[in-house]
Simulated scan of single mutants.
Amino acid sequence: MISPAVLLNVKEASRQFGGIRALTDVSIQLRTGELIGLIGPNGAGKTTLFNLLTGVYEPSRGEITLNGQSIGGKKPYQICHKGAARTFQNIRLFGEMTVAENIKIAYTQHAKYSIWSSFFRLPGYLRGEKEIEEKTDELLAIFRLSEHKDEKAKNLSYGAQRRLEIARALAARPKLLLLDEPAAGMNPNETRELMNLIRWIREEFDLTILLIEHDMSLVMGVCDRIYVLDQGKLIAEGTPDRIRNNRAVIEAYLGQEA
């Protein structure tokens, strides 16, 4: 049986802010179709790594490739075009825009009509807009947001805003989806729903997913493998069962006394 190809390869990535080293020689790999967890105590460097992967920061050292192409130092929009999309720990929607408009704006980067076609409302533009409208309606239905289509995004409940942010990320047609604490602020029932949703979108959209999350029930319940960071360094990698019983991981979370 042929192993899936490596989609994301991070090799000895480091990031330094002045005299503070936030990440030190971190190496991870995601193969196509995997759902991988990234965990660690507060301040471990998880979000810093996400910011390197999405172009918010440039690596101080090391190499990052997506689908075989270097993305280290690329702009966020360039990395998005190459197939990586993310959500944020603190939800970042266009609050004054409608729910539908938040999704449409992500679809337009793949629009097949030219600016001239748009300006003069030529047939190519009208066909493209119809396609975007249809795809937006599909995502709204999938994420149970259809009835809120014309509401401003800022007026949605917290859970609905989380779903909208994931839907918008999927509208960018990514190969790699980066989820930054998607269960933050959710109650246990919402977290269980989210767990099922993550499993479903992985299969339905043929995605590779990298997930930062503090809710261990979610991480252990959905991830194939887990990487663990502590103080900017990778301290463990393996299946949920191996990580659950890893002494270094237990000490990182609970202290050496434990």
Rank of each mutant, 00 (worst) to 15 (best):
F143T: 00
A169T: 02
A153R: 07
A141V: 13
I132V: 09
L164I: 11
A160E: 10
L170K: 00
G159W: 08
T191E: 02
P174V: 11
L176K: 02
K154F: 10
A169K: 06
L139A: 00
T136Y: 00
K175S: 12
L164P: 04
H148C: 12
L140P: 11
F143G: 01
A171H: 00
L194C: 06
P174Q: 07
N189Q: 14
M195F: 09
E151V: 15
L178Q: 04
T136I: 07
P182G: 02
R173V: 14
N187I: 01
E147A: 13
D180R: 01
R173G: 07
R162W: 08
G159A: 05
P188E: 04
R144T: 05
E131P: 02
L156K: 06
R144Y: 10
D137P: 05
S146G: 11
L139C: 03
P188R: 01
D137Y: 12
A167I: 14
I132P: 01
K130G: 11
R173P: 03
K152C: 12
R162L: 02
N196K: 12
D180Y: 09
D180L: 06
G159T: 06
L179R: 00
L176M: 02
E165M: 02
L139R: 01
M195G: 14
K154C: 10
E147W: 11
L156F: 02
L178W: 05
S157K: 03
E151Y: 12
